[in-house]
Amino acid sequence: MATLDSASESLSGEGTRNVPRSACSSEISILGDFNVHHEFWLSSPFTDHPGELAFIFSILHDLEQLVQHPACFPDRL
């Protein structure tokens, strides 16, 4: 039985190209309106449970918030 060498073969048996790690981008941006609230984010007046989970996730994964002001647009002037 042959073993799979992940550096040189794929599961289909075809050869794969080795890409140096320095050629891979390590910057990922996660964008969206997640509708979670935490008192440390954009002066939210309260923290909800999803906000606490998102806050812990962001700390564990060394994420930073890029938006510095609420992005609310009123539907009336």
Rank of each mutant, 00 (worst) to 15 (best):
M1I: 09
M1W: 07
A2L: 10
T3S: 12
D5Y: 06
D5L: 07
D5T: 08
S6V: 15
A7G: 15
A7Q: 14
S8H: 07
E9R: 14
G15N: 13
G15I: 05
G15L: 13
T16R: 15
N18Y: 15
V19N: 04
S22Q: 12
A23M: 13
A23Y: 10
S25R: 13
S26N: 12
S26W: 10
S26V: 08
S26R: 11
E27S: 08
G32M: 05
N35V: 00
V36G: 02
V36L: 02
H37T: 03
H37D: 01
H37Y: 09
H37S: 03
H37Q: 04
F40R: 11
S43E: 06
S44P: 05
P45F: 01
F46C: 06
F46E: 04
T47P: 01
T47Y: 03
P50R: 01
P50V: 00
L53K: 13
L53R: 04
L53S: 07
L53D: 05
A54M: 10
F55A: 03
F55N: 01
S58P: 00
I59Q: 09
I59H: 07
H61Y: 15
H61A: 10
D62G: 05
D62M: 07
L63A: 00
L63G: 00
E64H: 10
E64M: 04
Q68A: 12
A71E: 11
C72H: 15
P74Y: 07
R76I: 09
L77S: 13
